[in-house]
């Protein structure tokens, strides 16, 4: 773990994603005073989610603009992970609507929703890698939405271009040396990095990370957060992440959203907040 940590530290200086064409649906517009206004990547309007009659959160509204880094904080069980899944259209909302990259996830077709997901990179809390398959195969899977076809089942059959992209993504997270190792034989930290490589391999416009450093030691956690921060700044990628680390939320987020008691209790710029403001969400 230490070895990969140090290698990542040296790599965070060159974390640029592959160049990608400008998004077609999102064009920066100009405001009333002629000042360019960043396009809105995610818009949640009065979103509520209920599981079997139990409300998880309700009436959550916010807008995330291009290249914003947003931290979503809150105590366990407040629905942070559920909200992230709703934003990606992996879970339907019970009420309200989510507009993702200009399209309403509740009314758009399944095919269009898949197209939207292909433009987003997700790093789940439990990494969600396919065990038994190689690290490289798992990263190649990150291209499924963009390059359909059965050849991506394993890195052995994947097209050369896909394998190259996957290796580059692994290099960025410092795990190129473990490309052929089975995913279920990695440490928690290595597994997390593979999940990050899978998320970035398709040059996403939005990166969503659910507690990206939950299974990492403090130093490695800082590296992962540096990674996300660099991506957001250098590639114009919008980053949404959840975290229980108050200092991470304030340091890496441009903006902090706080969930408590099933409501959005906090929506402020990180610069305007103090750690004590966030600790209140956990009381």
């Amino acid at each position: 773990m230490r070895a990969s940590h140090s290698s990542t530290t040296s790599l965070v200086t060159d974390l640029s994603l592959k160049s990608r064409p400008a998004p077609k649906t999102q064009v920066a517009s100009t405001g009333a005073l002629g000042v360019p206004v960043a396009p809105v990547d995610i818009e949640a309007s009065c979103v509520s989610k209920t599981f079997a009659g139990t409300p998880i959160f309700s009436d959550v509204s916010f807008r995330l603009v291009r290249a914003e880094a947003v931290a979503l904080v809150g105590a366990n069980g407040t629905g942070k992970s559920t909200l992230l899944r709703c934003l990606m259209g992996l879970l339907p909302v019970s009420d309200g609507r989510v507009v993702l990259l200009g399209q309403d996830t509740g009314t758009t077709s399944h095919a269009a929703l898949r197209g939207l997901r292909a433009r987003i990179g997700l790093v789940s809390q439990k990494h969600n890698l396919v065990p038994r398959l190689s690290v490289l195969s798992n990263v190649v899977h990150g291209l499924l939405g963009q390059r359909p076809g059965l050849r991506h089942w394993s890195h052995r059959f994947a097209p050369e271009a896909s394998r190259l992209d996957a290796m580059q993504a692994l290099e960025k997270v410092g795990l190129a040396d473990l490309a052929l190792r089975r995913a279920d034989r990695l440490s928690g930290g290595q597994s997390q990095r593979v999940a990050i490589a899978r998320a970035i391999v398709g040059a996403p416009e939005i990166l969503i990370a659910d507690e990206p450093c939950a299974s990492l030691d403090p130093a490695a956690g800082e590296d992962v957060m540096d990674l996300f921060f660099q991506l957001a700044r250098e590639n114009g990628v919008t980053v949404v992440f959840t975290s229980h680390h108050i200092d991470h939320a304030l340091r890496y987020g441009d903006r902090v959203l706080g969930l408590a008691e099933g409501r959005l209790r906090l929506d402020a710029t990180a610069a305007s907040l103090k750690p004590a403001d966030l600790r209140g969400l956990y009381d």
Binding site: L143, G145, Q146
Partner: peptide
């Protein structure tokens, strides 16, 4: 385990 399946779904897979 349904989580790897969700991981695949999140990539935009059919």
């Amino acid at each position: 385990d349904p989580r790897p399946v969700e991981g695949i779904r999140a990539t935009g897979a059919s």
